[in-house]
Amino acid sequence: MLYEIPRYRTSGERHLLVELGESVSLEANFRAIALSRALEASAGLGAKGIKAIIDTQPSFTTVLIEYNPHLLTQEGLKQLCGHHLSQLAQGEQIKLESRLIEIPVAYNDRWCRACFEDYCKTIKPIEDNLELICRVNGLETVEALIHYHSSIEWWVGTVGFIAGLPVLMPLDPSFKLRAPKYDPPRTWTPSGTVALGGGFTAIYPMVTPDGYQMLGRTPLTLFDPQSDQAPFEESPVLISVGDRVKFVPISEARFEEIEREIKAGTYQYSISAAQSVSLGELQQPLPLAA
């Protein structure tokens, strides 16, 4: 799964792609995020110092690093990565600071259904998204699917593509939910759509083309570069890499109510303080009480 020695891949003269493993795993992703954070904290080299390290983009098995090759050679950067990786705990002991964010979702909502109907009419007729996911995964009812999808904590493995779009991996190793992608992709997806593709869940901050199967829609704002109000006072994105997400089913009526509360500035986002958590702890299944 993980390489013994990372593969360093040149991506132009200002970027280095560090590949930590050949397949997707929470462990590879934890290590990628930990390396990214260690590089950004490297005293004096990062954004607050001489800007030798300009940016990092962790993903499932890789970290892309943008650096200034006139201040830090590629060889020097590789050595720095090697050093940081050697400092990380092995296996399930690896720890990261992580917040838990609740995302209310109107599952099987009328806005995503309208988008689906538009696709059927203008591109080609396809199977209902939630029914397809039920069929592929052997679930009896759409209600069972909604209960299952919202029963676990999801791990934010990467954020990117377009402003603040998180891609989530299930933290419970026994959780199995998969979905094929649209072919051809949709030309648009409503903002706030929560969708499943492969074994990942994505949330769309804005109207965007995509191919994941639509599950529902959240009224929350995921990207706000202008606001200095909570939760955007420090970052323009609601969900950052290394956060955890718990979906909370809501009705369409509650969706519209939350929309109004957000507009009025009275909505209370549910975001826990960052806590240091180990991969081992997080992979314990949640008690089924809720």
Binding site: D55, Q57, S235
Partner: peptide, 9 residues
């Protein structure tokens, strides 16, 4: 904009 890849910017 430099330094916002991680947010998809």
């Amino acid at each position: 904009r430099e330094g916002y890849l991680q947010m998809g910017i």
